[in-house]
Write a protein that binds this DNA or RNA. Structure first.
Lengths: 184, 184
DNA sequence: ACCTGAACACCGTTCAAGT
DNA sequence: ACCTGAACACCGTTCAAGT
């Protein structure tokens, strides 16, 4: 009874992510993932209880990836305000670069683990704490992250159809919000 | 060749919406919709080219429904600022009452018609025009609607997991934004 | 003009059987 | 311990045949 593993959890998640990036959620089928890692679909159920669990693992990896990018953007900035602006730009860039993976983060259905989602927002909360104080940091973080998520998901959905400069709208929104929270 | 129609476009959309409300997108299957209107699934293709088109029709109806609620909230208010606050509350209430229908409005995949989506936001833009002037109305509308959409979709996804009062965070965000746009 | 049953290709998932 | 083929129930969709 040798029991040779032909693949691994991480290889499965990586393959699933690639299929998602290339073709959206519908392309992430158990059969396609199995093909990509050289295994039949039923074998995947030894690693993940069902498709939702696999999708959730992809979402968790995406949340970690985004969190790492925000940390990097935060570190490269010199003032709290510049750090928040830099994280906002990095956030939007990630969503535009990986729209399907981003779409998993706050969608109904299988989502990232609580820990990974909390970790993704942690650097934003940390900066806001130094900027507005403990008392308002959480509410301010929710204001900023809600706007960020709403803006990029509307942008990805093509909901900004009334013309005008979308980049300018992003800058306007960011400046308004940073001004508003600094004043709180 | 009598050709008796057993159902109608509006009855199909209504049945699809009910299935969506009750069981989410997965419950909106062509077979279930056919059962609900007393017809076999293939007959639905005489009315809608495919499932996405039917879902888009449900999304369009939802956008019109939300737009009408915003207009009503707007009309009941006495000042531009009160009207905006009232529309924001009505917007959130709609999303919480009909989360699956709301989820269609800005999601990837089949969405509402451009006209219906524009109509849903029109009362917000109108109020902002009187409040901040033509020049900033569009950017201000995008700030407000992006925050609204982000807030309610994060709330629906259960993304506010760090505790605190979510209602208070909504009020804080709304007050901050109304202050920010009034100042612009 | 609309409805139907039969068929096709594709899902996710279970499970007994292999090594 | 992991992998497989076969099977099941369910999809969306097409199409020839009915009235």
């Amino acid at each position: 009874m040798p029991a040779i593993a032909k693949t691994s959890d991480t290889a499965v998640v990586r393959a699933a992510r690639k299929l998602l990036d290339r073709g959206g959620p519908a392309a992430l089928s158990m059969q396609a993932v199995g093909d990509a890692v050289g295994v039949r679909a039923p074998s995947l159920y030894k690693r993940f209880p069902d498709r939702d669990a696999l999708v959730a693992a992809v979402a968790t990896a995406a949340a970690q990836e985004l969190g790492a990018l925000l940390v990097a953007a935060d570190r490269a900035a010199r003032t709290p305000r510049a750090a928040l602006a830099s994280m906002a730009v990095a956030y939007r860039a990630y969503a535009r670069r990986s729209p399907h993976a981003y779409g998993l983060l706050f969608a109904p259905g299988p989502g990232p683990s609580r820990a990974s989602r909390a970790a993704a927002v942690a650097p934003v909360i940390a900066r806001l704490t130094t900027l507005v104080g403990d008392k308002h940091a959480l509410a301010a973080a929710r204001l900023l992250t809600a706007w960020l998520h709403g803006f990029v998901s509307m942008e990805l959905a093509g909901a900004f159809q009334l013309g005008g400069d979308v980049d300018a709208a992003f800058d306007y929104g960011l400046a308004s919000l940073l001004g508003a929270v600094a004043r709180a």
